[in-house]
């Protein structure tokens, strides 16, 4: 599959696109937790690592089929998500974020010390199974699922919790279950993304899943516009491609990246697509064009 694609696409682009797809899946998971449900998570990289190590180890030791490994990695991450979701019963806002940050670092330290994960030396010898097609089929699947979820009864309950948890409880929404559910589904996405990541790089190191990665993911969804799927996609795309596109600036690349983040935030404080309803925007722009044709020379 990859060899076939390489005839048409430069392998470098292929690599960047695959990475983008993987980040998209993970970011959409975080979008459900933070964007839709309003539960701050600073530890999304931990779910990524659980999925990555889970899938990789199952593939190496039990020789399971790739898709099954991905699924298992996702489920393991979901389990971890449930485990983290429960403290969210007691904690809210920044405190929840900080607890997840702590959880993320603990997971990293554990992977750093376990024998089976190769410790600090990392886990090598993972077969390369991920290809562009698999990644993007899963991206589309994730987008569709999250979109449908968001517009279902479950999704509306999540939004209600984000807007006002107490009011939601009064309306008969058991916020605990919904919050834990959101964590589980969001982490499942991250776990699947982690499995893809592991089978793309063929090597895992705990150092790649530190809190910096978690904040990177958070930046993806906030910068695009918190709470909107298109925002999450746009933010992830821009911030994943920006370091590549800024390569022309050589040594100054990361300085420009940092400046870009600050500038975009100041320019669009609610995210690039924050407060923008894409469907309405498209509809209204069509409508205004209609109007333009009927009343020329701008009345």
């Amino acid at each position: 599959m990859d060899d076939f694609l390489k005839q048409f696409i430069n392998p470098y682009y292929l690599q960047v696109l695959m990475l983008l797809g993987i980040y998209l899946i993970a970011a959409l998971g975080l979008h459900l937790i933070t964007g839709v449900t309003g539960q701050l998570s600073f530890g999304h990289a931990a779910f990524l690592s659980v999925g990555a190590y889970g899938a990789a180890l199952l593939n190496i030791h039990l020789d399971l089929p790739f898709l099954l490994c991905l699924l298992a990695g996702g489920l393991l991450a979901a389990l971890a998500g449930v485990f983290v979701g429960f403290p969210s019963m007691r904690l809210s806002g920044d405190y929840l974020g900080i607890a997840t940050l702590g959880f993320c670092e603990i997971i990293r330290v554990v992977f750093m010390n376990l024998e089976i994960t190769g410790g600090a030396r990392g886990l090598a010898g993972i077969p390369r199974e991920t290809n562009l097609l698999t990644v993007y089929i899963l991206v589309i699947l994730t987008i569709v699922t999250i979109y449908r979820l968001q517009n279902s009864r479950f999704g509306r309950a999540l939004v209600a919790i984000r807007e006002d948890e107490i009011a939601a409880e009064c309306m008969g929404i058991r916020s605990i279950w919904y919050k834990v559910g959101a964590f589980a589904i969001g982490s499942f996405c991250a776990g699947v993304a982690g499995g893809l990541y592991a089978h793309m790089l063929q090597y895992l190191n705990p150092a790649d899943f530190g809190f910096v990665r978690s904040f990177e993911l958070l930046c993806f969804i906030v910068l695009g516009g918190l709470g909107s799927i298109s925002g999450a996609i746009l933010g992830t795309t821009i911030l994943t491609l920006a370091p590549e596109m800024l390569r022309f600036s050589a040594e100054y690349r990361m300085m420009m990246y940092g400046t870009l983040m600050v500038a975009m935030m100041i320019f669009r404080p609610r995210g690039l697509l924050g407060g923008v309803d894409l469907r309405r925007l498209i509809r209204s722009s069509f409508r205004s064009r209609d109007r333009d044709t009927t009343t020329p020379a701008g009345g």
Binding site: V222, L223, G258, V262, R270, G271
Partner: peptide, 16 residues
């Protein structure tokens, strides 16, 4: 603006 906006901005400053 929203609470997370300055947080992202501060991450940008930190990278810079």
């Amino acid at each position: 603006s929203i609470r997370l906006a300055p947080l992202i901005s501060s991450i940008g400053v930190s990278i810079f």
